[in-house]
């Protein structure tokens, strides 16, 4: 199976493979924008409560761990890079390299996920799970701080769900890449998977400063 590409005939509804790939990319962008609106709604809710409870939120945000946030950011950025490299490799028909780079991406994604679990466990251990038994050590209103932690868990949790979906999707394309189902002339599903992973990264690029880094210098104004 060294160079035995499967035929590059387009699916029956298309005129050419080029058209098929163009449409797939266009469709994927529409889906990504839909996904963005999901997070848009979450960020909106978060912003609304920042506006309503600025003091409490500013204090509560201090309880998040900047180190975890930074490390997770770096891990995810590198994982996006390996996806970009994998696509470049695939475009040059270096399929083994591409599959390997996707393997690295999965490893990095798992690292992120494990860090997330450890972070959650710490927060829950500190009594910061915003449900019955919420124990808030801060000075501001515990009710309002509880809302902060609700959004923290909801936003990072929704992100984590997307991360898992992205990991699964990457897992599903690795073998077909090795087998030659996807190759330099046709790799729309791989590209779609890559785009999805980048979106997960872009969302986190916003989650990091908006959750972990708020109110660090004291005085939000």
């Amino acid at each position: 199976m060294s160079h035995g590409h499967k035929g590059v005939a387009p699916a029956h509804q298309f005129e050419s493979v080029e058209q098929q790939q163009r449409v797939a990319r266009f469709g994927m962008w529409m889906f990504l924008i839909s996904e963005t609106m999901i997070f848009g709604a979450l960020f909106t809710g978060y912003a609304v409560y920042w506006t309503l409870y600025p003091e409490a939120f500013q204090e509560a945000a201090q309880f998040l761990d900047v180190t975890y946030g930074t490390v997770m950011t770096v891990v995810l950025l590198v994982s996006s890079t390996t996806v970009a490299l994998a696509i470049t490799a695939l475009e040059g028909d270096r399929r083994r390299l591409a599959a390997g780079l996707f393997g690295v991406t999965i490893a990095l994604g798992l690292v992120f996920f494990v860090l997330k679990i450890i972070e959650y466990a710490e927060k829950i251990g500190d009594g910061l799970l915003p449900t019955r038994g919420f124990e808030y050590p801060g000075a501001e209103s515990a009710d309002q701080a509880q809302v902060f932690f609700s959004w923290y868990f909801v936003i990072t949790g929704t992100h984590a769900v997307h991360l898992i979906v992205g990991l699964a999707a990457i897992g599903f394309v690795i073998w077909p890449i090795l087998r030659g189902t996807y190759h330099a002339k046709y790799f729309s599903p791989v590209e779609g998977t890559g785009l999805y992973w980048h979106l997960v990264d872009v969302i986190w690029i916003f989650v990091f400063p908006l959750l972990y880094l708020m109110g660090r210098a004291g005085g939000m104004g």
Binding site: T70, L213, M214, M220, G221
Partner: peptide, 13 residues
């Protein structure tokens, strides 16, 4: 981003 978060830039955070 991290540096800016700790910088004294008031409303511009």
């Amino acid at each position: 981003t991290v540096v800016a978060a700790y910088a004294p830039i008031g409303v511009f955070h």
